[in-house]
Design a protein around this nucleic acid. Sequence first.
DNA 1: TTTGAGTCAATACC
DNA 2: GGTATTGACTCAAA
Length: 382
Amino acid sequence: MESVKSLGEPLGLQASGSEQPPPGEPSEGSQPGTPLPLSSLGSSALSIQEMVAMSPELDTYAITKKVKEVLTDNNLGQRLFGETILGLTQGSVSDLLARPKPWHKLSLKGREPFVRMQLWLSDPRNVEKLMDMKRMEKKAYMKRRHSSVSDAQPVDSALPTGDYAQSGSPQPHPQQQLKKPRVVLAPEEKEALKRAYQQKPYPSPKTIEELASQLNLKTSTVINWFHNYRSRIRRELFIEEIQAAASGEGGSPSVRAGKTVDTDSCDGAESDGPVEGRGRPLQADKVPPTEEAARAATPALSPGQTEPTTSAGEAPGTSQASPHGGPSGLGLFGFPEATPCAASSRNPKDSSLRKKKAANLNNIIHRLEKAASKEEPSEWEF
DNA sequence: TTTGAGTCAATACC
DNA sequence: GGTATTGACTCAAA
């Protein structure tokens, strides 16, 4: 019991059942999509869907905070926790823990992992079980490693190499061989897409076509990028709302504690963080008509191909904003146009919030236009 | 058909 | 080795 360091009081939703299966039995538990049966979490015969439907409103932030705490304190990884308890992969768990959406914004399906977390937290023995599983996994791994070494397998054949043809690992399924390589967008491409997003968060098919051809990307990649970007921006806005509300009402530090987004969003990986795009200020007073969005995307990529008004190296958005931003380099809402990183490092919270609001406004405008059945705005005014 | 929500999984990062 | 990021995908709703 000593190993269970920080499992404290349950967070509200109690597991209804009390029967506990014998500890251990990890069996096939480590595949995403096959979380531990609910009975293992202490619930009764209710299905998870039923439990979600019946669940009272849960504090997703408190739950994820607690889960993070417990995982950290007990040295349990996201992968094991996700695959065993939630039936999700490590990446999904990371995302959920780092950016939990408020309960009311979640669909029934989206609430499921939180109910599972809550159930898991409600019984301290669950942590011990997971730790047992971890030990068993390690044992099994060592065993495999040992046997593969004694079989004189090529180095580490048990590990995926990414190159099936040359490794000693088993032949992959034909479908794996055909798997498409992941597209990795270059920073300039992302920058260009973000710029296009600023001007039109919902580009027309024509704009998408243009963007794709100008950036030399597949249209599906551009479409996906816009989908993902909108979705992630929306999510960040939810978080900001919560944080603002929390701090407004003397907010619990716990809500903020888990949030690493934004404040250190200039870390290079997505220096802008998912938030950054909204971060790009709305361009000056007028956003160019629709298809201009595509055109606006190009300079960063091919300075030689387009008019030199916005040079590749120039801080994005600068040239367009200059008429309005003036020498101060401020955009429509008064925050710095260029180098969002620099801006946010000066006043990270303030500027990022403003940026998000600006982008949010852009989205609202789009919807209003849509509602008004305006196909393409010739001019956007505020 | 488009969009949002949720997720996977490759890969970048620490 | 664990975690974070992100392009792609599935599914459901409008």
